[in-house]
């Protein structure tokens, strides 16, 4: 027991918690993105899907239970991810207590250097997103809990497209986060090595592009009048 309890105290343990919770979110986002695409099949189909999420697992589960179970996984995962990210980032800053006058990077790319900033942006976006489409407070012009299709269309058409643009900016941050994050996850869990690193980089690139593009399709389609 002592081993597993000591684990989160170590830098590597925290990093592994970050990788596992990131993987949970990656899976969740993939499912979420595919679900969103049902908007192109029309209002009835989309609303049925949204309702279906609440009646999933009946009769074993009651109304809304499956959704709550999912929330019980993704919310703690996010809390752990953010906790590890912030703790480690602070530690990393302290570890270089005297600053270089000149320090050149030979390898690092923008995705790697922006992880914590992109992450904080994503966190703020998640709050905005919940206010927008889940709770329908403040940032939505005409929220109706029984008509998700309307909520999405009206939400993206509202306020001179500012909410839609916020989504697109957040998605750009997400693509950078996932490009480094997906490869990084394998390295952190010890599943990367020289033989696979190229393939894993390509996988990370595909994941980043496909998830981001899939999500972006919805606000873009509303903005350009393809749906709505």
């Amino acid at each position: 027991m002592v081993g597993i309890l000591h684990f989160p105290n170590t830098t590597i343990g925290k990093k592994i918690i970050m990788a596992l919770s990131g993987a949970i979110w990656l899976g969740f986002l993939a499912g979420h993105m595919v679900g969103n695409l049902k908007i192109f099949m029309g209002a009835e189909h989309f609303n049925e899907y949204a309702h279906g999420l609440r009646t999933l697992g009946e009769p074993i589960l009651v109304y809304g239970q499956a959704l709550w179970i999912a929330r019980l996984v993704v919310v703690p995962a996010l809390v752990l991810h953010v906790w590890a990210a912030i703790t480690l980032s602070l530690l990393n800053m302290q570890a270089r207590d005297s600053k270089y006058v000149q320090h050149r990077k030979l390898n690092a790319n923008a995705a790697q250097l922006s992880m914590i900033f992109g992450g904080i942006a994503l966190f703020l976006f998640i709050i905005f997103h919940l206010m927008h489409f889940t709770l329908g407070v403040l940032v939505h012009p005409s929220f109706n809990p029984n008509d998700p299709y309307h909520n999405v269309i009206a939400g993206f058409q509202s306020y001179f497209y500012i909410p839609a643009v916020i989504y697109l900016i957040a998605l750009a941050a997400l693509s950078l986060h996932l490009y480094h994050g997906t490869w990084s996850m394998f390295q952190t869990l010890g599943l990367n090595n020289k033989t696979y690193t190229k393939s894993l980089r390509i996988l990370a690139w595909l994941v980043a592009i496909s998830i981001t593009a899939g999500f972006a399709l919805v606000p873009l389609s509303v903005m350009f009048g393809v749906v709505g």
Partner: peptide, 23 residues
Amino acid sequence: VNMVTQMDKEGFGACTNMGECEA
């Protein structure tokens, strides 16, 4: 376990998989 624990105690930072070290 021991080497990682000692490494942390010495105040070194955590890896963010950038590869500046191997470069």
